[in-house]
Amino acid sequence: MPDPVLQVRDLEAGYGHVSVLRGVSLDVAAGEIVTIIGSNGAGKSTLMKAITGFLHLTGGTVTLDGRAITGTAPEKLVRRGLALVPEGRMLFGPMSVAENLALGAHTRTSATEIAQDLERVQALFPVLAERAAQPAATLSGGEQQMLAIGRALMSRPHVLLLDEPSLGLAPKVIADIFGVLDGLRAEGLGILLVEQDANLALKHADRGYVMRTGHVVLTGTAEELANNDDVRLIYLGAWHGNE
């Protein structure tokens, strides 16, 4: 594996006195999709919040492009090249699609580069160009997810974190969105994907980590995980007769 762009070591974090993450380590390299699977309460979303600086860390380190970013505030991480597409998308609902995308480029200064990236994002998701003047809140769920991803890409990240991007979306839209993620990987972006739907995640990921009660209990290539008996039984719904 090439040098990781994102390196997480022994991360510990929690809420108040409740520790949720109990020593999580993982790597994401450029040009790969890494997924974290696990059931509700395993600590996946907490891990995202901890990496992106929204939670106070009680232990461990996070490194981005070889530089320590442990405990860095979220607004500073964007400038370092880390972007998050949060669970629930967190769009600026009353503001237009164009303004949401412009906010994604808030940390950048070159107008020509911003214009180039806007063109690129609109090529990835043509609907964002069609609906540029519309308030974000009036978009459908799938379009909103596309906007959230497009907005994150406007910061030109090295690593993109996605928290439950498929939640509540129709299969056709999910296929479109994951198609775009595949394309971004091919361009060299490192992607860390938290996904409830383990089947979907392992189909698109290169590698994966299985989390349970704040620990990584299993790691391997997507293929290894998809063929692992425990994973198949617990997360892939093998008991539904997938044998």
């Binding site: 992106t52 929204f54 505030a73 979220p74 607004e75 500073k76 964007v78 400038r79 972007a83 998050l84 949060p86 967190m90 769009l91 600026f92 609902g93 009353p94 503001m95 906010l103 994604g104 808030h106 940390t107 907005r151 910061s155």
Partner: peptide, 10 residues
């Protein structure tokens, strides 16, 4: 609209 979302934008 949202401080958290604004911080995510940098």
């Amino acid at each position: 609209l949202s401080h958290d979302a604004a911080r995510l934008m940098g």
